[in-house]
Amino acid sequence: MAWRQPMTEIDTPNDSAVGFHQVSKSFGALTVFEDLSLTLPKDQITAIVGTSGSGKTTLLQMINGLERPDQGEVEVLGRPVPYENLESYRRGIGYAVQGAGLFPHLTAEQNVTLVAKLVGWSEAKRRSRFLDLLKTVDLDEDVASRLPRQLSGGQQQRLGICRALMLQPGILLLDEPFSAVDPITRLGLYESFEQARQAHPSTTVLVTHDLREARRLAEFMVILDAGEVVQSGVPREVLANPATPYAERLIESQLS
């Protein structure tokens, strides 16, 4: 039950929010991670960057238990992921994906407030939280009763972020949520996202292949290459001093 409470109250001595300890993971013959160890800072935005197939999404999904490591341990806010009780655990972790992944048969409001309803929030509480969230992501109230297909891609993506933030999670996982919209809409989304995060700070892990996005949003950055961490640190420093040829190529291809 403790996981339903905002998790920011739980202190960890080393100030790390997420720790991967000697994690190995393969899918059949394909080994994604071998003996990976990595810690991500608390209350900050960490960007995980790398090319397709580098293991970014798998890394993210090990945090909320969608993927389970074959070996090693994943520790979140000082506790190992509780695989026997994932449902209530996941309700403490926000999750947003590329394309928003809204349920097509539910209205915008029903989509955002579904889980709040399942955990027993009153209708009034759900409504007021929903309206607050709409404001922070710059959406009008009149989207509330619309179905996803009646909304633009940018609107859907904003609602996806609202849904992730609905229960005020201590951890927020973002799997390229800004990449499926046009560049102008994306800039608007960044602003909305930053507003929303200011209203409710949390440990955030952002998977992206876009280094500009990482530079713009993240306070910590990890470069993954074929399941290995080749570099991590403050984005400005990492981008200025690529540690490997892979990192250099990655940076040059996008930022030069």
Partner: peptide
């Protein structure tokens, strides 16, 4: 499958996924 993954990540139990996602669709 994306919707199923999202619903699991939101903390919906198997029964809730059925009730709120699979059955209506």
């Amino acid at each position: 499958p994306t919707l199923v993954r999202v619903s699991a990540a939101l903390g919906l139990s198997g029964w809730e996924q059925l009730r709120y996602l699979r059955l209506p669709l």
